[in-house]
Simulated assay, not measured.
Amino acid sequence: MPTGVALREVRRQLFDAAERILLRDGANALTSRAVTTEAGCAKGVLHRHFADFDAFLAELVIDRIDRMDPQAAALRDAAGTGTVAGNLTEALTALFESVAIAIVGLITARDGLRARLRETIPAGVPVLTEGATMIAGYLTAERDLGRIAPDRDPDILAFTLIGTAHLLYAGTDGDRPEDGAVEEIVTTIVGDAVR
């Protein structure tokens, strides 16, 4: 590893390596040695920039949560266009076909990581909670435009959508759900709320 490489570049390289391992091999394969090997750098590089492996993982999760911001903005901007079910299906598919499902498994499997994340994210399951917030923001915008019934609670709909989609994706052992499965759950959950 060349000296003088900016911290941001090292962090990105390590985070991207961890994501590749998560997607390819799962949470159990994620170790500091696996990450540095995948990143092509010495093991000490990770420990030079992070207090320990759980600190690295916590920052990885927060970095991946921050990457959801553009997706949330795009979804809010889609309010009033296309169909509500289509927009939600696309957003849920994009969320759960990313590294999100692997990160949730990682958080579930590591007590130290959960404890670290509680320092910054005191409630909910990281990634899923932010996904629900993204969906609720969109549904609120659609309700304000009159495309969702005024008596429907966007938060309840969002948590129901996120929870159901999570179960759908978590039960596939890394494979995509069957074609139309996400759209079917979206239509079932929000169908009678759409005007």
Rank of each mutant, 00 (worst) to 15 (best):
L106V: 15
L23M: 15
E59V: 04
Y138K: 02
I156C: 04
T129I: 06
E9A: 13
P122L: 06
L139E: 13
G163A: 06
R195F: 09
G4W: 01
L106K: 04
R114L: 08
I65G: 00
D54G: 08
R176S: 15
V35W: 00
A102G: 03
L168K: 05
D155I: 11
L157T: 10
A193R: 09
R176C: 08
G86E: 12
F159H: 15
V84M: 01
G171Y: 02
T93A: 13
H47T: 11
P150L: 03
T160Q: 14
R147E: 09
A181E: 09
G191P: 05
A141T: 06
L161E: 03
G26Y: 05
H49V: 14
T89E: 15
I65E: 00
C41A: 02
D153F: 03
G82P: 08
T187S: 12
G191C: 10
A42S: 15
E119M: 07
F56Y: 10
A165C: 11
L57E: 15
R195I: 04
G163K: 06
H47S: 12
P177A: 06
G4D: 15
T37M: 05
P154T: 11
R116A: 13
R48M: 09
A55K: 05
V190D: 02
T81I: 02
V127P: 00
V104K: 11
R8A: 14
F50G: 02
D77T: 12
E130Y: 01
G86V: 10
D52L: 13
R176Q: 13
L57S: 08
V104M: 04
L22N: 02
D151R: 10
D63E: 11
G146F: 10
L30C: 07
G174S: 08
N28M: 05
A141H: 06
L22G: 01
R116N: 13
E142T: 09
M68K: 00
R116M: 12
L23I: 07
A165T: 09
N87D: 15
R147L: 13
T129S: 14
D69W: 00
